[in-house]
Design a protein around this nucleic acid. Sequence first.
DNA 1: CTTCTCACA
DNA 2: TGTGAGCA
Length: 263
Amino acid sequence: MNNEITISELARLMNVSVHQLRYFEEKDVLTPAYTDHNQYRMYGMDQVYQLAHILLLRKLGVPVQSIKECMTSYSADQHKQLLHQSLQEINTELLRLQGLQRFITKVLQEQQEFILSSDEYRIKWRDTAYLSHWLEIDAQTKLTARSLAERASQLPNLFESDIYYIENEANILTLYTETQTQGPGVLTLPEGNYLSAQRLIHEDDELEQVVEQFFVYAAAQSYVIAGPVIIIEKSYLSLFPPNGLHYELQALLEPHPEGSQPT
DNA sequence: CTTCTCACA
DNA sequence: TGTGAGCA
């Protein structure tokens, strides 16, 4: 009786391509039970089990090369080490995906917030935040690709996170990124109510005017600003049309005197 | 339907 | 680490 099956039947059975099966054979991990007189590869139960084993190890990220050595001569200890290694690779991959998940969630949330509060001033509460010093530039000089390449040591995921600009009295613009921990070179942003405005900027000089308007608005509302204006660039929002750079201006407000809350 | 080889990501 | 095209 012919209990063996052809390559296409095995491929269909195990949900792999015929190509892949011949590739496994070339790499010496799956040999047919025998080859028929017409040169057709024929596979039996042994091969079905073996292929299931191979596919399982592949799912764990084990290279085909290792699978070969694994099935020929590997100690129990080496098997265990292989599994531990693949486990830790999967864990780092999981961390990578969780990072992407957080990023996407943040983009969606921020763009929603932008749509809702575009061209409006709001007061919003901010918890204490920590900004880690990234680089300083003269307020007049523009940020260029060269200055990034020269000055910026390393910033993972450039432009995937918020970039904070704070200008001091000496006209020096300092760029910060958010960080979780306190430490050297880390600026603490106190918690409190911040006046906030979000704007879409198309021209470079447009930002200065927006900052001026920000102060004018604050004065008109009798807000007392208790610190520098913080400009937050959210470049990742430019993923969405209309294009331009998304900025949010924030400034810490002194607590309002009783009875003078704006309506 | 299978085989093999080659080029291509 | 595979895939797709073309051939016999």
